[in-house]
């Protein structure tokens, strides 16, 4: 695999499949009593987060520790960026620590692309602006494969704020590459300007999830309401909230996913979120295995 993982576009289909199969072996490690392998002992990994994150950062940190790497968390509050601290200086500082891997989250799209060209360490994108979140897409694909056996031919509805969602963007690329059929469901105000080839768009949730195998609900960001993307949370729930009643339109074995953190009662009802149809906590567990696989494979020649 290439030195960096900044976009799903960097991965060939075989590489995605290799990550998933490697993740399956690492998941076995996680089930053991001693959940640790020496695969990356002595490697230095820096988690460089310019945006608040608990889930993704801890998931990466745990994955790194399970691989016996040395981990450094470097959180830069957005405020100091505003004050004019140079991104370049920060990254060069980290490079000077001798980091082998930099896991980067940044509020601006394209930052991992920019930095990956500057540093010799492997850069792994942990979410850049509204652009991509590749490891989330990989763990979602892993979860679907685990639950459904394959992605080939599955209908997947991604529901909500597609336009501003790096999860949706990476997922549509990753799922399409693995043979799933992707639908975007949401209000026109939250649809991307350009719809990727092969993706079907639905403004009506009932139609959009009819017969689907997977429903991927996206987090509603409250600041979107202030910018007139939609009128109110209750109206949003009325139109796009995932409820049991609506779930009946989907395939009887359909699973419900959410990248977290959830807004219960806005994009998903508590009943659905807590039901056995939801695989939200499996996604969290799988995230560790998938991130172990990514860290293990990235920049490796033989893979």
């Amino acid at each position: 695999m290439k030195k960096d993982l900044v976009s799903i576009k960097d991965l060939a289909e075989e590489e995605i499949r290799l990550i998933l199969s490697t993740a399956f072996s690492f998941k076995d490690v996680l089930k053991r009593d001693i959940k640790k392998v020496p695969a990356l002992r002595g490697k230095t990994m820096v988690n460089l987060f310019f945006e608040p994150s608990t889930r993704t950062r801890t998931s990466f940190e745990l994955a790194q520790k399970r691989l016996s790497a040395d981990v450094l968390n470097f959180s830069v509050p957005a405020s100091s960026v505003v004050k004019g601290e140079s991104l370049l200086d920060t990254i060069r500082t980290i490079q000077s620590y001798g980091a082998d891997y930099i896991v980067l989250r940044h509020p601006c799209s394209g930052t991992p692309h920019f930095l990956s060209k500057i540093v010799s360490a492997s850069v792994i994108n942990a979410g850049d602006g509204i652009n991509e979140h590749p490891t989330q897409a990989l763990l979602d694909a892993f979860t679907i494969q685990e639950k459904k056996g394959t992605l080939e031919g599955l209908e997947v509805a991604i529901v909500g704020d597609i336009m501003h969602s790096r999860v949706a963007r990476s997922n549509s690329l990753c799922l399409s590459a693995l043979g799933a059929k992707v639908r975007f469901v949401g209000p026109p105000t939250l649809m991307p300007v350009h719809i990727p080839k092969g993706v079907k768009v639905f403004y009506n949730l009932q139609e959009g999830i009819t017969g689907v195998d997977v429903i991927m609900s996206l987090r509603v960001q409250k600041e979107r309401m202030d910018s007139a993307f939609f009128p109110s949370e209750r109206e949003y729930f009325k139109l796009y909230g995932i409820t049991f009643e609506r779930l009946s339109r989907a395939d009887s074995g359909a699973i419900v996913m959410h990248p977290g953190p959830m807004n219960r009662g806005i994009e998903i009802s508590s009943e659905v979120a807590d039901s056995d149809r939801a695989v939200i906590l499996d996604q969290v567990t799988n995230g560790i295995a998938v991130r172990m696989a990514v860290l293990y494979l990235v920049g490796r020649d033989n893979a």
């Binding site: 799209s109 394209g110 509204i130 652009n131 790096r166 991307p192 300007v193 350009h194």
Partner: peptide, 13 residues
């Protein structure tokens, strides 16, 4: 520019 490239790069148009 808002369009196919902005959508693909995840940049606001």
């Amino acid at each position: 520019n808002e369009g196919i490239i902005s959508s693909s790069l995840g940049l606001r148009g």
